[in-house]
Nucleic acid binder design. Structure first.
Length: 419
RNA sequence: AGCCGAAGCAAGACUUUA
């Protein structure tokens, strides 16, 4: 029986869930009574592939065979629903659970994460309170989830409270817990507090890992404190925490944003010498760096280089190039890159079209801008307020107040709030 | 009873008077 379970698990992990199911249904069930462990593994296999239909079907099979679902079953199902972002279904599922197989700390944490993801912050917090009330003790993962959820919802203050609550509860924090808090503080522009926490970590016998370092490196970079960012990367090397591609990505982006792309380039060499290959993010930063410096030939060369290295440029990359070329007045080339984008099967997104609209506006080509907006709306895209702002500004500058008003009305109709 | 489920980090468009 253990052998079968081990085999099934191995198949699931290898992405061969169909075989796993066959082994379970046709070989194992003839010899051994069905058990939750096996079903959980197979259900997970299908859910990981996005096939929730089969997942739920197996769940029904399981129940009809009299196999008791357990907390892990719920965890697997909730994880799947979490990835789909289907909070309502998840809540309905939890309601349908009978009391003999309760939720545990993992399934609760999964559901809390899902609710935060669906921006249902109040519900997430209520669920957290509920689990405590029911005697299910939150662990470090639960707290990390809650702190992260609160911070990403713009409630760092409450994130900090939850973090303190974690310490008070006697829960031993791990680097994950600190990292989400540090990240939240950095993004809320409370860098000093983030540094403080980072320094406290080491003292607490919880040394920062590569992600924690990277988070703070990014914090320094976003605050324009590049010297400190660089020093921190040196420190992590010294401490034996190897920087990752993301670490270098943050550092390189920081320099690029400050128009110091020439200092960023040696860092690419440095990362390569450490065995790290620049990825699409790194190229994105570099291309943006050249764009900000008005050096579009070099930006385009970088795109060629990434192609030759087998990296596929995405909408970010193309949008940066399209924008940069337009800004320096190279309209025909800009358009050519937009066409190349489409021809290469890269789908322009709302930012791409927003960029194009903005560029038309800047160049006084308002009718073109207006028609792109309508195209966006027709295809169901939701332009951000800044796109409407750009259009209104463009019409105003040409003295076409009525057209600007028309834009404003469209904006209101789309439910887009003015900024 | 054999370790089946949960958490963290980076790139693109508006607004600048120098």
């Amino acid at each position: 029986r253990f052998t079968y379970n081990a085999l099934i698990l191995a198949l699931v992990r290898g992405g061969r869930e169909k075989e796993a199911r066959r082994v379970m249904e046709q070989e194992m069930l003839g010899t051994f009574p069905p058990e939750a462990f096996t079903y959980n593994a197979v259900i997970q296999g299908f859910c990981d592939k996005g096939d929730l239909t089969t997942g739920f079907k197996l769940l029904e099979d399981m129940k009809s065979k009299g196999v008791q679902t357990n907390a892990t079953t719920h965890g697997v199902i909730l994880k799947a629903l979490c990835q789909k972002g289907d909070a309502d279904k998840a809540l309905a599922y939890v309601k349908s659970i009978d009391s003999s197989s309760e939720m545990d700390v993992v399934s609760y944490s999964t559901l809390i994460k899902l609710l935060f993801k669906a921006r249902r912050v109040t519900q997430a917090c209520n669920l957290f309170d509920e689990m405590v009330k029911l005697g299910c003790k939150p662990n470090a993962v639960t707290y990390a989830t809650v702190v992260d959820g609160l911070c990403k919802a713009g409630r760092v203050d409450r994130g900090l409270k939850a973090f303190e609550q974690m310490l008070d509860s006697g829960c031993v924090p791990n680097p994950h817990c600190y990292t989400v808090m540090i990240d939240g503080l950095c993004k809320a522009r409370k860098l000093e507090k983030a540094i403080e926490l980072f320094e406290k970590m080491a003292k607490q016998d919880c040394s920062p890992d590569a992600v924690t370092y990277t988070t703070l490196v990014d914090g320094f970079c976003k605050a324009g404190r590049l010297g400190e960012a660089r020093k921190l990367v040196n420190l992590m090397i010294q401490k034996g925490k190897d920087p990752t591609v993301v670490t270098y990505g943050c550092l390189i982006d920081g320099f690029c944003k400050k128009c110091r792309v020439d200092e960023a380039l040696p860092m690419v060499k440095e990362m390569e010498s450490r065995g790290l290959k620049p990825n699409v993010f790194v190229y994105g930063s570099l291309i943006n760096g050249f764009r900000l410096a008005g050096r579009m030939d070099e930006a385009c060369n970088m795109l060629t280089e990434m192609n030759s290295r087998g990296l596929r440029p995405n909408a970010f990359i193309y949008t940066t190039i399209v924008d940069g070329l337009s800004t320096v007045g190279r309209m025909a080339e800009s358009q050519a890159y937009f066409e190349a984008m489409v021809n290469n099967g890269c789908v322009p997104d709302a930012v791409t079209y927003g960029t194009i609209i903005n560029q038309f506006c800047k160049h006084g080509n308002m009718e073109a801008a207006w028609s792109v907006l309508n195209m966006m709306l027709k295809s169901g895209m939701k332009p951000e307020a800044l796109v409407y702002n750009s259009l209104m500004d463009g019409f105003y500058r040409l003295g076409k107040v009525d057209r600007a008003e028309q834009v404003y009305k469209t904006m209101a109709k789309q439910g887009c709030k003015p900024t």
